[in-house]
Design a binder for these strands. Structure first.
Lengths: 202, 202
DNA sequence: TCATAAATAACCGATTCGGTCAATAGCGTT
DNA sequence: AACGCTATTGACCGAATCGGTTATTTATGA
């Protein structure tokens, strides 16, 4: 049923998709109305049904699209190259923010769908956001040695995870990307300076 | 019109208020329905109208209630006593979290109302969350001297503000208060140890 | 037991819901 | 210009839900 939609131009697809993602994210499945989505996308309500058949199918399409996009984003995660912990955190953060910029409503849609306990999200979310997974990806054993107190490394990492959530909130609330990222970069440098042994400082 | 409601027992008032706060916070003013609120509160829809007259009056009552609660919470902020910066941050965080525990839905309701750009919130929110205000309240000049690099103090404070937002998100998503606060306490100690000059460490 | 107050089920007109369909607008072909 | 074909939409459908009212039931207290 979705072929009609996929035949549209990429721009129009993106416009409609973003409108639908935003509405579902903001209001949830039941309270989001096709009328709202159509108005936000600048098309008629009938067209939405022409493209997707019904409300459920539209939601399912968005779900599949977001899961695929998420997997792709994580597959493209090649941050093992940088050898330093703080550089890796920085790189991962930049990647996350760039993704947030490129696909603005995916994160909030996923969060909203998770709140409605959509079953198929459980798996996709678990593999992507599992703290242990990200931990082994970012924090290596040899990183700890650079710390004045090696036992601090894990806690610093956990702090970054919380910090990332706070940043995401601020970004959603309209704060400018560049300003926040600049500040985050300064924070990283500061932490590195204060936590590393002198021999590992530039 | 609200006298009927205020005549109820405190527990029943709290139950109804929390249901209404949760519904308005989750769905916004327009999409939140009196039916939903009544069901969540375990009373009949007619009773809600009996207590508050109409939807707008209910919303206005919640708004007034939350603003009053917020002001009271900030008036009770007596954290000047502790002389150390990190202790002050810890105390402020505990206060914030205790408030979040005591009045679970106020924060999200205020956020939702702010998103709908309710005019009277502008003032109340500005005085309460203005970063400059909190900054002068928590970060004093003599604190900076304790840092190995005094210029780090302000950035550490900014980091705490972001961290607090991340913590709030996790708390809303159902993580346990005590676990998060334990971790935050550890983070504070760790930062203090790494940032302070040795002479200021216990 | 009875009067009174509190709570609700049933109901109201109006609006909005998801969904359909016939009419229209756009557009390449001849 | 007239045609045919398709993409798009305005108008419409019955059903559900909206905010709000009212008549009836339930609880209370003298």
């Amino acid at each position: 049923m979705v072929e009609k939609f996929l035949a549209l131009s990429q721009e129009k697809q993106a416009t409609i998709r973003n409108a639908a993602l935003a509405c579902f994210a903001k209001h949830g499945y039941e309270k989001a109305s096709i009328h709202d989505i159509a108005v936000m996308a600048g098309i008629s309500k009938a067209s939405v049904f022409q493209y997707f058949g019904n409300k459920q199918a539209l939601y399912q399409y968005l779900l599949d699209y977001c899961i695929a996009q998420m997997k792709q984003a994580y597959d493209a995660s090649t941050l093992d190259l940088n050898t330093d912990f703080f550089d890796r955190v920085w790189e991962a953060s930049v990647m996350k923010v760039e993704n947030l910029k490129k696909y603005p409503h995916i994160a909030s849609f996923i969060a909203s769908a998770a709140a409605e306990s959509i079953p198929e999200l459980k798996d996709a979310l678990f593999s992507a956001t599992s703290e242990k997974f990200v931990e082994t990806l970012v924090l290596h054993e040899e990183d700890c040695k650079k710390f004045k107190r090696p036992e601090d490394a894990l806690l610093v990492f956990r702090m970054f995870m919380m910090l990332a959530q706070g940043m995401a909130v601020q970004l959603e609330n309209g704060s400018d990307y560049d300003g926040i990222m600049k500040e985050f970069e300064k924070i990283l440098k500061m932490l590195k300076y204060n936590f590393y042994k002198e021999e590992y400082l530039p």
